[in-house]
């Protein structure tokens, strides 16, 4: 059954950067939802991740700043070394509190926050990674009747993260990258 979504949150860690290089250029330009990406990465580099992706798609690609409003049809990255939460007015709330699952940004925190605000209109994808961040948050989205997608662990470069999610609940979709791209373009 096709569901209208208002936000797609993508969480990834080790092995996910290359996947995003495949996925982002192929997202259709007429999407009607927000794409928000939480990617574990090293901070202290002066290079912004949004700049790396900016010439790969005609859609606007932005690294979130405090209080930025999330606009449909745009692709946002959570900034390195901040947790990202969402306010009721759909603006961004950054938080430099303790790491969660050894991670900042934590995928769990953003998944949960997106679910609390967008409820059943939230969708989330959990990609390759070497820790368990994101699994609980994805389950939270599922319990709030949102759409949950896990990268097929057989295909993931590091399958720990997808497997952690599959251990604790049954998401609606377990997909390979090509299938993920098709699904995104059919939301």
């Amino acid at each position: 059954m096709k569901k209208v979504i208002e936000i797609l949150v993508i969480g990834g860690s080790a092995g996910s950067f290359e996947l995003l290089l495949k996925i982002i250029p192929r997202i259709k330009i007429d999407i009607k939802f927000v794409v928000l990406i939480v990617l574990h990465r090293k901070h202290n580099t002066n290079l912004s991740i949004s700049e790396l992706f900016r010439n790969k798609t005609p859609l606007p690609v932005l690294e979130c700043e405090d209080k930025d409003k999330l606009i449909p049809g745009s692709i946002y990255f959570a900034p390195a070394d901040y947790h990202l939460l969402i306010e009721k007015d759909r603006s961004v709330c950054l938080d430099y509190s303790e790491k969660e699952n050894y991670s900042r940004p934590s995928i769990d925190i953003t998944f949960k926050s997106a679910s609390d605000i967008y409820k059943e209109k939230a969708a989330a994808i959990l990609l390759s990674g070497a820790n368990k961040d994101g699994a609980e948050g994805l389950k939270h989205i599922y319990q709030n009747y949102g759409t949950t997608i896990v990268q097929n662990p057989n295909e993931a470069e590091i399958s720990t993260m997808p497997n952690e999610a599959l251990k604790i609940f049954n998401p609606q979709y377990v997909l390979k990258v090509e299938e993920i791209i098709d699904l995104i373009n059919n939301f």
């Binding site: 306010e87 709330c93 938080d95 925190i109």
Partner: peptide, 9 residues
């Protein structure tokens, strides 16, 4: 204070 953050705290 920002609601999302303080609620989490």
């Amino acid at each position: 204070y920002s609601k999302a953050s303080i609620k989490r705290r």
